[in-house]
Amino acid sequence: MASAPGPEVGPPPSAPPASAPRPAVVEVREVSRWYGQVIALANVWMRVEGGIVGLLGPNGAGKSTLMKILAGLMAPSRGVALVHGRSLWHDAEARRRLGYCPEHEGVYDELTAREFVTAMAELSGFESSVARKRAAEALDSVGLADAMDRRLKGYSKGMRQRAKLAQAFVHDPDVLLLDEPLTGCDPLARTQIVARIQELAKAGKVIIVSSHVLYEVEALTREIVLIHRGRVLAEGNVYRLRELIDRHPHRVRVECTRPRALAARLAEQDHVVRLTLGEHAIEIETRQPDRLYDSLPREVLELGLELKSLSSPDNNLQAVFEYLTAYWQGTTESQT
């Protein structure tokens, strides 16, 4: 994916990577965007070659701005954003290959979902009868088969989200930009939308999903771009990113019988930096998680312990996000 900096570096590089491994489907080069005195995006570089990519960041990080620039709805103040090698800004024809699900509502309450999605398909060039058929299929695939002839003003937030998602892919685009597609959805709608997005990815679509809710993205993909205050903090596989954060020891929690015995064994290993003993569990902090995962089963077997659970509380997006944003905060503060 990316020419982004590793987490150790902090701000993004000021130059592109020396060599691009493959042609990118989506490519962002040195993009900045400001609104008057406010900088929404600062020197962003990004490459997406395929699959689902999560664009993560807190509210106001610049995700929607980046999405709009990619969708051709907004021009960058500097730099260039390309989809299939073409800037979609002022290129209506090139936008045919793009599907965009905006964060904001913007739907016509008086239309039924079928009419709305049909109109969007027609705007993408489908004949009326084909558009109507495709709209019905798209709405069916997001679980709105029974409700597609109801007016949108009677829809719940989750149903509207699904209708918006249907209009984004009804015209068979190659690239889908989904801006906070799970906002306001109930668990059932969330599950349906996640399943549909995964189906679309399996069908070969390149999908960029933005969200400020980490577990939403985690349900979709492990490939992320982390954006904060308009800058790309990190990108890549979330596990790989976690490994790169060596300032923070990796935490592993083991629930077992006789945790004290296990703690005594582990304390002899040089990669273990800290042990926290509980009544029925032990939390281990290590700088070399691979070595820990190698040795743990052996120790458990040798001691004859009953292992109840093994988890890594910080091996998830939340932890990566917190470490990186905290690191970035510290870097900028020390610079000032």
Partner: peptide, 13 residues
Amino acid sequence: VGAFQFYFSRSLR
């Protein structure tokens, strides 16, 4: 309502 987003993210001038 922001309906322009639906129009101009498509091949519409």
